[in-house]
Design a protein around this nucleic acid. Structure first.
Lengths: 151, 151
DNA sequence: AACATTATCTGCATTCATGCAGATATTAGA
DNA sequence: TCTAATATCTGCATGAATGCAGATAATGTT
């Protein structure tokens, strides 16, 4: 690929990521949750129920801090604790699906504006973007693990 | 565009955004900064010097909290205060360019893995992605403003 | 010149997330 | 059965980010 292409990509990409994270922080603030809390809910929603320990690993918190995190989220009715019948030491945590969540209204502006962006894309372009997202998402997760191991 | 396309996009996109924000949080933790602090530096880096008040608006903090934020970042040598000669009440803040920053090493894993993802894309696909990023970034910024006004 | 407005900073207080170390409950192994 | 290992929880303490209200300094206005 040619250099001008890469230059243009290199110029916008960090700004793009910056904008997404800032939007994530603003969203958390809007719903009155800490960033970690909000994105823990997201993790549980997208990846399904998991043990408290697994959630601790995902978030990078200690198990004690994770207990408290689950406490906060449970109190808000965002997640639910289920004791694992197979191993009663373990606690499975799962997101409560709540479309009633104020989160929806906080995400609405982004949804609307992004809908416009995607609406102007051809089917082929949508496919290209989707392919990219499908590869980039796990890449970020791997990077997170690497960062945690290194640090 | 066809429904299957949109379904696939709708399935991956929230996970993709979740991954990016989680990566942002992990990065902040790795460099020992709060999320707000790290992304304030990013904002200053990408958008250039601005007044303390403008930074307060961008971050959604009060001016008092912003003063403290700048204090923290200045103490770390990440930003610099410059009194505006035209209006000496004002304080311009700018990012100190420091390639030496440990931030670079924290971002390295993501950079490497994303480089692989982008390397497999054709020039046309890169162009599609770049176009998208260029439109999505401002969309997120607009969404942030809308959220703040609403909340 | 006097006053109002604006921009940033400070003192004080509060909230909250988090770590750490030890406690408890459960399971696995010898 | 006794002991070790594992998973989560609790008590305690701490640090850190933030808001708020008032202080300070500079500018604009009449």
């Amino acid at each position: 690929m040619s250099t001008p292409d890469l230059q243009r990509l290199g110029a916008i990409y960090p700004r793009y990521l910056n904008a997404i994270v800032l939007h994530g922080l603003a969203t958390a603030q809007a719903v009155g949750l800490g960033p970690t809390d909000l994105y823990a809910v997201g993790t549980l929603t997208f990846y399904g129920r998991m043990t408290s320990g697994d959630l601790a690993a995902k978030t990078g918190l200690t198990t004690g801090a994770t207990t408290r995190l689950i406490d906060r989220l449970e109190q808000r009715g965002l997640v639910r604790r289920i004791t694992d019948p197979a191993d009663r030491r373990r606690v499975l945590v799962e997101a409560v699906d709540t479309d009633t969540l104020e989160l929806d209204s906080a995400l609405a502006p982004a949804r609307e504006k992004l809908a416009e962006v995607f609406a102007d894309a051809s089917p082929a372009e949508i496919a290209t973007l989707t392919d990219h997202f499908e590869r980039a998402a796990p890449a970020f997760h791997e990077a997170i693990e690497t960062i945690r191991k290194t640090a």
